[in-house]
Design a protein around this nucleic acid. Structure first.
Lengths: 215, 215
DNA sequence: TTGCTAATTCAACACCTGTTGAATAGTCTG
DNA sequence: CAGACTATTCAACAGGTGTTGAATTAGCAA
């Protein structure tokens, strides 16, 4: 009988690469380090995924669909409840953020690493433009569309700049650098994602309303 | 006579390293690429700065004092104008952000690269905790102190989480990834820092007020 | 068992990495 | 001019890099 306690080596490679890429970036990680962490020979990564860049892409792809689905479900759910006039800014942002919190709280470290990887890619002038759009833009546009409806009369560019601020606050949260821990001398913990979102939602919602003239 | 049109090679190394580190990160840049861009032999970086890590630190250090001074001046100036009750949240955030805009608009590309480098470091789970505090925490605490005064009765942790959101929005702006250009189909340009700050100031100020119960 | 195929390891390649010590050129002082 | 010191290049090192083809093992069908 095959041992199903430890995941297959292919998955262990993805897990190891995910964690290491998230912390050190693409160039900061060596295939040998990934292989060692996965308990596997170097050549196996190549056999399963091809070049290093393809492995990077595979890690990035793996959880994207799941994440998009739960976010889309959350958006549609709050739209269904809200009825004709549509959900409020707060409800939309909540649908945008809470699925991430849920993923982070599963006890599965993989999701935490994956979201930190997204933060790395999104903040990188090199990777950001190359990789983010292909997987996330379509859904983001849906959220922005919903926000526009919740902010009648808002100028398009204002909505985009507001989303940019939201995206930045989220990105730094996902990166999970522990800097707020030091600044606040332990009063805030960057690993406490619930607290982060509890503050981020009213913070950004108020920003949207103010900039888009709805107060 | 020595040619003072082209800067000394030592400075050219710093400039090249600054630009490349900002775009590709520490591990994504090779000393040979830096040397080539600077028009200089590989060994010269070592002669002037020692190890690669020391060069990285030297790049990070070079403009920090200048930046901190202009930010501190801006804060003290708005405090002097405001008098006893202190400046408003908007004025404090303005003092926090505008010096960056000025640096970015000098035509000197160096400052743009430097601020992108800060974004890279700040968002990195590896470098962030190791490098940000030493140069920037003292002044940041001064700003947070001013914000506390402008938000009487606010809970400390709320102020820190709000600052975290501000810091995230700023970081993504400095990274200058061009993603908002694509999302907005050209309506917004991530290179347009003035527009970014014009939106970020009211956005984050409204967030502070809402979360800290001042509305 | 014998095959067959996919999964995995082994061994090695050509190349690139950061770093260094010696050699050369440049600059200023006396 | 000689001398001294700094700045810069040259040449090379030991070790690490991604990648590959052949060899080995495991899993399963007939």
């Amino acid at each position: 009988m095959t041992n199903k306690n430890t995941p297959a080596k292919r998955d262990r490679i993805l897990d190891a690469a995910e964690a290491l890429f998230a912390e050190h970036g693409y160039d900061g990680v060596t295939l040998r380090r990934i292989a060692t962490r996965a308990g596997v020979d170097v050549a196996l990564a190549n056999y399963h995924f091809g070049k290093k860049l393809d492995l990077f892409q595979a890690v990035f792809d793996r959880r994207a669909q799941t994440l998009n689905e739960s976010r889309r479900d959350a958006l549609h759910a709050c739209q269904a409840i809200a009825g004709d006039e549509g959900p409020s800014v707060e409800q939309i942002i909540e649908a945008f953020l809470r699925p991430l919190e849920l993923a982070q709280e599963t006890g599965d470290e993989g999701w935490r690493h994956y979201l930190a990887l997204i933060a790395y890619i999104n903040n990188s002038p090199y990777w950001g433009p190359r990789m983010m759009s292909q997987l996330f833009d379509e859904l983001v546009q849906e959220f922005i569309q919903a926000l526009r409806k919740a902010l009648p009369g808002a100028r398009d560019e204002d909505v985009y700049w507001c989303y940019h601020n939201l995206s930045g606050a989220l990105t730094l949260t996902l990166a999970n650098t522990g800097r707020i821990d030091k600044l606040s001398r332990g009063k805030c913990l960057s690993a406490d994602f619930q607290a982060a979102y509890d503050h981020m939602i009213p913070f950004t919602a108020a920003g949207f309303r103010r900039v888009c003239g709805q107060e």
